[in-house]
């Protein structure tokens, strides 16, 4: 694998070139934070800004989250790791961004770390892929030969669980929720304005952080992400109380893949599975 420092250099070189040639107006990448272990999502708009770009093992952010913040038509360069590229694809499918307005800077990488725990981020909490699915430029060598477990392996333990135990498990987890909504805000696919949970007519849930409202928020959000979640794990890393949201998202993704034969964010030709159908879909899926 190409070293982090080398990727950082390539990122800077490409960012400078793209801005200098006027091909893009903003480069979405990673920038210096208050110390080395705390880099930040970063938007470089001038050549002088490029200096602040960094890349290290803590740059786990999914920059696709920021795409929708710029008006349609803005020429944007975006740095993406594997899962992030899937988010970009998904956003293209959903017509939130146009392919021709993007310069996708792919980063093949292995060994990203969760800044809170220092743990390696792998298929347990994300899709576990190493190479971007879609890119214009690759900023390092593709990772080959590294074995990656199925992103769904981690589910076995929970699928085995007895129904009542699983209910207790989730209830306990959701009861921890403080309704800060960082999960939806960190999620590249959560871009609605307003989000259903902020609606007052109809009001879907109480504002107080307690069981019924928390349950409504999470079940509905899982549903809204069905067939769209690209398993980047950002929601769970953002959560201040460490609710393993990724488990639920993975399960829904797995079910969708089994029912509809399509994984989220793998091709810009696809349509999101829940705004699509096949006449030959079977009624069996309803059983």
């Amino acid at each position: 694998m190409t070293e982090f420092k080398k990727i950082e250099e390539n990122l800077k070189t490409e960012a400078t070139r793209l801005l200098k040639e006027g091909l893009v107006t903003v480069v979405l990448a990673y920038g210096k934070g208050f110390d080395e272990n705390h880099p930040m999502p970063y938007a470089a708009k001038t050549i002088a800004d490029v200096e602040n770009i960094v890349f290290n093992e803590y740059c786990n952010y999914n920059m696709a989250r920021y795409l929708v913040r710029y008006p349609q038509g803005t020429k944007i360069a975006i740095a993406v790791k594997a899962a992030d590229s899937r988010a970009v694809i998904q956003l293209i499918q959903e017509e939130k961004v146009k392919r021709e307005n993007l310069v996708i800077l792919g980063i093949p990488v292995q060994g990203m770390k969760n800044p809170k725990t220092g743990e390696i981020i792998d298929s347990k909490t994300t899709c576990g892929m190493y190479n971007p699915v879609l890119y214009d430029l690759l900023l390092g060598e593709e990772v080959h030969g590294a074995k990656s477990a199925s992103p769904y392996d981690v589910l076995a333990e929970y699928e085995k669980m007895d129904k009542e135990a699983r209910w207790e498990f989730w209830k306990k987890e959701f009861d921890k929720c403080i309704r800060c909504y960082a999960c939806r805000k960190a999620c590249p696919m959560c871009y609605c304005d307003p989000c259903f949970i902020d609606q007052s007519k109809p009001k879907w849930a109480d504002k107080a952080p307690q069981s019924p409202g928390n349950m409504m928020y999470h079940l509905t959000r899982f549903h809204h992400l069905a067939g769209r979640c690209i398993d980047c794990g950002e929601c769970s890393r953002a959560c201040p109380v460490d609710i393993p949201l990724y488990l639920f998202h993975k399960k829904v993704a797995k079910e969708c893949e089994e029912m509809f034969n399509q994984a989220a964010g793998m091709s810009i030709e696809d349509k999101p599975v829940l705004v699509d159908f096949r006449v030959e879909d079977s009624d069996k899926i309803l059983e």
């Binding site: 129904k163 498990f169 549903h223 829904v252 079910e255 829940l274 699509d276 159908f277 899926i285 309803l286």
Partner: peptide, 24 residues
């Protein structure tokens, strides 16, 4: 024409979500 074909996919997903939450 196709409303229920979308609904089928959507409601199937609803069921899976309820099931994984531990609901009947």
């Amino acid at each position: 024409n196709t409303g229920n074909l979308y609904a089928r996919r959507r409601l199937a997903t609803t069921k899976k979500i309820l099931e994984f939450a531990g609901f009947e």
